[in-house]
C-alpha cells in the first residue's frame, strides 16, 4: 500500500507493507538517526515526533504515518544551524557513545514544546523513556535545562 506523509518538512509518498513498522520504514528511507535499541518500546532510541508528539517508532505501524507529519533528529537543524537542543547536548558534554542521543533530543523537543520551563523532576519524568547506559544522565539533565533557556530566548 501507498502512504503519503511529511518527513522533516518534505512531503513524500512511500510504498509500504501493511505489517511494516515505522522504525524500519524510516531507517530504510535513509533516516538513520532513528536507532533500534530494543524493539519493545523500552529504550526510546527510535523516538520520532508524529504530529508533534514523541513516540517510539518501533511500536508504530508504518501505516499509521499516513497523512502525518514526522520529525526525526535529522530534521532538527534548520538553515544549517543546530537546533538549540542539539547545541545544548553538544556544548553540555551530554554525549558519550551517542546511540541514545537522537531519540533523547526528540523526546526533549516534545517535553519543551509542551512545557517550556520544566522543573528538574519534570525533566526526569519526561525523559524516563530514553535509556542511556553511558552518561548517568547528569549532563543530559543539565543540557535539557540549558536548551529550555535557549528556546525561550534566554541567555546561553
Amino acid at each position: 500500500m501507498k502512504i503519503a506523509l511529511t518527513v522533516n518538512a518534505i512531503e513524500c509518498e512511500m510504498e509500504i507493507e501493511p505489517g511494516e513498522i515505522l522504525l524500519d520504514l524510516l531507517r530504510h528511507s535513509g533516516y538513520k538517526s532513528v536507532k533500534k535499541g530494543c524493539g519493545s518500546g523500552d529504550c526510546g532510541a527510535c523516538a520520532v515526533l508524529i504530529d508533534g508528539r514523541a513516540v517510539n517508532s518501533c511500536l508504530v505501524f508504518a501505516a499509521k504515518a499516513d497523512g502525518r507529519t514526522i520529525l526525526t533528529a535529522e530534521g532538527l537543524e534548520s538553515d544549517g544551524k543546530l537546533h538549540p537542543i542539539q547545541e545544548a547536548f553538544l556544548e553540555g558534554g551530554a554525549v558519550q557513545c551517542g546511540y541514545c542521543i537522537p531519540g533523547m533530543e526528540i523526546t526533549t523537543l516534545d517535553l519543551l514544546t509542551h512545557n517550556p520551563s520544566p522543573s528538574e523532576e519534570e525533566i526526569r519524568e519526561g525523559l524516563s523513556g530514553n535509556l542511556c547506559r553511558c552518561t548517568g544522565y547528569v549532563k543530559q539533565i543539565e543540557a535539557v535545562k540549558q536548551a529550555a533557556k535557549m528556546m525561550s530566548g534566554g541567555s546561553r
Partner: peptide
C-alpha cells in the same frame, strides 16, 4: 581542559554511522 568531543557533532546530528547504519 574541557575540550569538546570531536565525535559529538555527528552524534547530535544523528549522523554518526553505527554498524547497522
Amino acid at each position: 581542559a574541557a575540550v569538546p568531543r570531536p565525535d559529538a557533532i555527528d552524534k547530535v546530528r544523528g549522523e554518526a554511522r553505527f554498524v547497522d547504519d
